[in-house]
Design a protein around this nucleic acid. Structure first.
Lengths: 222, 222
DNA sequence: CCTACCGATCGGTAGG
DNA sequence: CCTACCGATCGGTAGG
């Protein structure tokens, strides 16, 4: 007699589909079930970190589940598909970045130069600051979204970039910026976004240094 | 009697491994078998286009085979693994870019500003010109390489960026560049590399326009 | 380079 | 959220 009894597998009959129907999937979120929202946000946090590190396609839903301390099927309780999870991350990241940027623009508009400085500094924070994986995921994994999802994110990007437009136009008029403001915006944001590829938080350059150097590079201050 | 005879499947016996051994895989390339090199390059070309469009992980070896007009197993006659194919693309792209850049630097060194202009223009060509998928694949898919492969590519990148260093140092000394030359290099290359994300060949801006605008943005020419 | 295949893995799901 | 599973697909391979 073996000490451990092997659990005899229940025979699985294939259930006729018409009898198998019953409501499934995520129940509507009840107000007050805070804990569920916490698990959802935890999933987004760990998934964003993995997506940033290895890329959306290279990360499996099992990786994500394990990183969140769940079993393999459980992420699908919170997100219908892996793609919906990616979209939730990117959308939340953009909404947060838009909100914090707006707060900054509202409180620091002494001059066009200083406004640009605040925008650049904030952008670096969003890209490179602690716990900031959502925007890098948008920048480098947005391609994996569906066309409709991409269109929605494009709208958020326009909203995010909107405050940059008048500032760069003003600087061009003042002679501090010597390029077409629209192209300058694309080039400046490109220079900043690329820092995700090489920035080392343990390195010598701080976000303040990067901001100062970027302003020096792009603007001619007399 | 059915009109079409169903091919009776040959029973497949599992062959004892010690009897199944015989030389397999890519035969050594004989000198003169030009056609084989052509197929290999064609595979690299179509794979690079697909990798750029959809990302390395999202492209299957079957996609690549179909795009090259082959059957699903045939790419593995030319490349041991999908990863080796990616590495071949990136390595070839870097070697070609280093060679063409060197030719440019050798023939146009009238001044530091003009040398930078030639470097920028050449870099745009490599990123956005016709049939130029290899470098964008390096920029955005290099993460899928193994650590050793990445180290090899990093060496090639250093070689590629080497001519930029003295030019930017000279411009800084001349007062035409107002930022640390090393950070400036990272930011300028970032601004250029990001153009892969938004540049539209059918749009209004030509590569010459981009080059002029970039120089105006980064340099203060009196 | 084709044919025919395999083991592993993956996103996702039924049912609880 | 767990258990137990499935169909599809994927990179890769033996043999020719």
């Amino acid at each position: 007699m073996p000490h451990f009894s092997v659990p005899s597998p229940m025979p699985r009959f294939s259930v006729p589909p018409e009898l198998a129907k019953r409501p499934r999937g995520r129940p509507r979120k009840l107000p007050g079930t805070e804990a569920e929202g916490n698990r959802r946000q935890e999933l987004m946090r760990v998934a964003a970190r993995l997506f940033r590190q290895k890329g959306f396609e290279a990360v499996t839903t099992r990786d994500i589940a394990a990183a969140a301390g769940m079993h393999s099927g459980s992420p699908f309780y919170h997100f219908e598909t892996k793609g919906v999870l990616l979209f939730a991350i990117i959308q939340a990241g953009m909404q947060a970045a838009i909100a914090s940027q707006e707060a900054i623009v509202r409180t620091a508009p002494s001059s066009a130069v200083n406004t640009l400085r605040a925008l650049v500094r904030h952008h670096y924070e969003v890209l490179l600051g602690p716990d900031s994986d959502f925007i890098p995921v948008m920048l480098y994994e947005g391609r994996s979204l569906s066309a409709e999802q991409q269109a929605a994110i494009t709208e958020l990007r326009k909203t995010y970039e909107a405050p940059w437009v008048p500032v760069l136009q003003t600087l061009a008029k003042e002679g501090a910026l010597s390029a077409d403001p629209d192209l300058a915006r694309l080039m400046i944001l490109g220079a900043l976004n690329w820092s995700v590829q090489w920035f080392n938080p343990q390195g010598p350059a701080s976000l303040s240094t990067l901001t100062d150097q970027a302003l020096s590079l792009f603007l001619r201050t007399p």
